[in-house]
Design a protein around this nucleic acid. Structure first.
Lengths: 216, 216
DNA sequence: TGTAATGTTTACCAATCGGTCAAATTATCC
DNA sequence: GGATAATTTGACCGATTGGTAAACATTACA
């Protein structure tokens, strides 16, 4: 008798590891474009190259697949912020945070879109994670930024909105990719647009945070 | 015999105007949360408070409803950018553009989310509008900004990415509203967050664009 | 190599999907 | 007030949805 999801053996089979990976990969393809409600198990099964019941053998419901995916993505999504170092140099920390977030937008656009889709729908599946781990981490980094500002290392600013603006500007290049390409035109839609964005954003944020000297 | 959508009379009935308005309002509610694929005619019909066939009497297909909605939203979405005045003062023009966009995020979050949903899905229904009218308008304003920079009125910067960053930061407060509220916590989730955002963003962009004098 | 656990497939289900149709109801205008 | 056009509804359709049952195939391990 088949017992899905290794309930009996505790240890996961080689096949389980492989297939679950393939499924989550396919699920990411589909969910990131159509959102939870707009995606179907059949679509995912087709992308994964296996039958629907086979897929449901590994993840018993559509919700289960989505949850597994969200958990994984949320973790990597927060990586750059976690790397934000209180002991580093403010300017270079912000610079590399922007760079890291832009690299994620370039290298993992599906993950970014999955997350964006979830937010647009009111975060029905991750509200707890937002209020818990996410808020805690942000609060922690906000304190760092505040300390920097009080020490006169950077200009005073609202740290929450600073973080929001870095999130939104960087993720924009993943989530609104079609729009960016359409506006830039085919001649500027190569991968170079990420370098242009990095240059622009670093200038924007670093200059914006520099302590302003005697007015020009 | 009933001829849908006033094919015969040319002029639209009072009832037609009213009902189409109610339907589009309901459709905005639903589409903005679940996207096109994830929304159902039944949902919209329920929100609109009428039967499904009745709804389909005014809009023959789900696509027709979505298109009518997109056309309307795209127009108002571009209003602030259209208002961007080449003859105005650069600093105050950018300031009021940011303010206008933030007001839209506050007052029309569903419209912003509808648009974001469409972008996430690869803009299957509006790619032409992006490449055509949108790109033209942006190109026009990019020239304005470029002229300002060349005249030494503002710092040099990539005008395209400047516009992208204003779009993304302002729309963030509509599209990622749940996240913003979760991170700010219940005590800062009142309408005041838009004022805080406005203050922060105006400072960020205006300072970032000020010609920098002798270094501080 | 045998066998028990694991993995896969075919056939199927009830619910929901987008959409149609004809009949019933209501508004409009002379 | 009656005819005519406009509106609304309930019953229905085939396709698709998320998910199940059980037979079948494969793997792992003694």
């Amino acid at each position: 008798m088949a017992i899905p999801r290794a309930a009996k053996t505790q240890r996961r089979t080689r096949i389980q590891e492989e297939k679950e990976e393939i499924i989550l990969e396919a699920a990411l393809d589909v969910f990131s474009v159509s959102g939870f409600r707009g995606s179907t198990i059949d679509q995912i099964a087709e992308v994964a190259g296996m039958s629907k019941p086979n897929l449901l053998y590994y993840f018993r419901t559509k919700e289960a697949m989505h949850r597994a995916l969200i958990d994984r993505v949320l973790f990597t999504w927060l990586e750059p912020l976690r790397a934000f170092d209180a002991n580093g140099n403010p300017e270079s920390e912000i610079r590399s945070y922007i760079r890291r977030k832009l690299e994620m937008a370039r290298d993992f656009p599906r993950e970014s879109r999955l997350f964006a889709n979830e937010m647009l729908q009111g975060a029905p599946h991750v509200e707890d994670e937002l209020r818990g781990p996410l808020k805690s981490l942000v609060d922690e980094k906000v304190e760092v930024i505040r300390t920097w500002a009080q020490a006169g290392k950077i200009a005073k600013c609202d740290p929450y909105h600073l973080i929001f603006s870095i999130w939104s500007t960087t993720q924009h290049y993943a989530d609104f990719d079609v729009q960016v390409r359409a506006v830039l035109g085919p001649e500027h839609s190569g991968e170079g647009r990420f370098e242009d964005a990095a240059r622009y954003l670093e200038q924007l944020f670093v200059d914006g945070l520099r302590i302003r000297g005697p007015r020009a």
